[in-house]
Design a protein around this nucleic acid. Structure first.
Lengths: 319, 319
DNA sequence: TAGCCCTCAGCAACCGGTTGCAAGAACCTT
DNA sequence: AAGGTTCTTGCAACCGGTTGCTGAGGGCTA
């Protein structure tokens, strides 16, 4: 069995409270005693039990991070940045994946409650109402969702979509397909907003779709049939699926159809043609979310991060 | 504040132990009392504090999963499978990323200790000795590493490499480059083992390398210079980097050089040419690791899972 | 040397639950 | 009706720490 505080106390003939203070308030214990305790602790391989400590202090020094799909390459940079930022603040991040299932999401949040000091909720699938209810039990920072009174980190998708559309119109495209993602997703909503504001263009809307390669593949035929010369896709995975599907129909990208994605994930950079995309500030969002969680006196600061259009090879002049 | 067991006890005029039993041993409490307690609990929004419970029971019903790099597409399928399997056993999985840093790995393990019932250590970067020491404090299952007396899940890389080499020799290749990964990695070791056993072939060894696209890119020039007509790469990322680097030198794949990777990740499937690769049983490994952790009476069962060569477009006949 | 302050260690209550033990009540048995 | 079960609940110790309070001892000042 692992050594407890009592073992250490017994080993050096001192009360447990002294051992406790040696670790959590060293300045309150005499240097000589302190080193005796430390020696004994080291000898026994003692490590404070963080869960037990949390019981009295109310702080665990770890935070939860919940994503809908860890296999989506969009998340890893966000996760890594959050972990790095947290580490710098003496915190640890526990990641969990909901498999796009709201029930799993709720269960995970409940599991995290009391085991972490707060939860970073990335691209949640739960309803706002549910999130607000759960927030009574554990502090949240929400990424990619705006909930009144709750700290949130947003990405300026509207701006990115606007730049993307400008890029396409600049290349002469007039008939543009908009391939959205799941219902209720932040990016989808923003994309639709932009579409609504650009009535001069011939925008054709396709959705909802799965936010994956398969989703893009599935919608490719419809897109081809609609006669659009360019496509703005929900994310890079969808864009890649779309390109895959178009190629299968002998439709060349970007020669016949231009395609733009969102996220700037690795497979897009490796793809032929290299994907033109709207880069999302995922890493910055991860860092910011951690900071908001640690700062938040509970008030709901909202941070919006800018996106950037990255022009590569999947867009070209309209025929 | 969240309601505690005391609040519930007070609310329905019953002792805390009765409330406790209502949740953890319902058959020991009178149905009438039980429903009163449940009603009060529901009313107050009471949820048992899992950390506090773990303090006395010694079981948290969650497990840790540590990977070297969550951004490596090899891991998500493993993680998702492990989470699904654990969920079926009433467990939850907390994932953490070590950033390829052994010190971070150690720290994470220490953090997990006492907050989880066991840790799945995937492709660890720590030394065997260190892992054995840490195993005194928390049960492990190790994936992609053989440690005597410790439950481990291995992938039959040697078999995969052999099949890959046979495929290449079948296509007429006689001069084959072996591009390995980081020192101490299971796959690298196994690959070297196979190389040693195939002295008839002209195998040229390159390593160690970073297990990423950048690693492949960096070694591309050397590989081109050595005159090999085929390459067996440490993993798909390296293979993709290699293809990228070769293309930049106007060396066509598979026309001039054939390339095989390991892992079968998404970017490889999307790549042009589609990558020929040795598929790793990542999902099966995740499930198996969970099962081993929950079964293990501590004995070190070792499970080896088979790999499969998937021939796509990046390999072809030798010139 | 008395009086005072400061340092440092022990005591004990507490965090939110769990669980072995015991006792009261209700129900049987003979 | 006495004695034995079974069911249900309360009591209290315990898990591994933390922390406010108390008080002994030492050093300092006047």
């Amino acid at each position: 069995m692992a050594a407890t505080i009592k073992d250490v106390a017994r080993a050096c003939g001192v009360h447990v409270s002294t051992v406790s203070r040696t670790f959590s308030a060293p300045h309150l214990v005499n240097p000589a005693t302190r080193s005796r305790v430390l020696a004994a602790a080291d000898d026994l391989g003692y490590r404070p039990n963080r869960a037990a400590r949390a019981l009295t202090t109310g702080r665990t020094f770890n935070m939860g991070l919940i994503v809908a799909d860890i296999a989506n390459p969009f998340f890893p940079p966000l996760i890594k940045a959050a972990q790095a930022q947290a580490r710098g603040r003496d915190y640890h991040v526990f990641v969990a994946d909901t498999d796009e299932d709201p029930r799993v999401e709720e269960e995970l949040i409940r599991t995290f409650t009391k085991q972490v000091d707060g939860v970073l909720l990335c691209s949640p699938r739960l309803s706002n109402r549910m999130i607000e209810r759960l927030a009574e039990d554990v502090p949240f920072v929400v990424v990619n969702r705006r909930i009144k009174g709750m700290p949130s980190v947003l990405m300026n998708v509207a701006q990115g979509a606007k730049h993307a559309l400008e890029h396409l119109t600049g290349l002469g495209h007039r008939r543009i397909a908009l391939v959205s993602g799941p219902i209720g997703s932040w990016t989808s909503n923003e994309m639709q907003g932009v579409a609504a504001e650009a009535p001069g263009l011939g925008l054709i809307f396709f959705g909802p779709n799965q936010p994956t390669e398969a989703g893009g593949l599935a919608v490719a035929a419809d897109v081809a049939a609609c006669g659009a010369t360019a496509v703005l896709a929900y994310n890079d995975l969808v864009a890649l699926g779309l390109i895959e599907g178009l190629s299968a129909m002998e439709i060349g990208v970007p020669d016949q159809v231009s395609v733009i994605g969102f996220d700037d994930i690795l497979p897009g950079r490796l793809n032929r043609p290299k994907l033109t995309t709207v880069a999302m500030p995922a890493a910055a969002a991860g860092r910011m979310a951690v900071d908001l969680l640690l700062q938040s006196g509970g008030e709901g600061a909202t941070v919006t991060l800018d996106t950037a259009l990255i022009v590569r090879e999947s867009t070209g002049r309209a025929q």
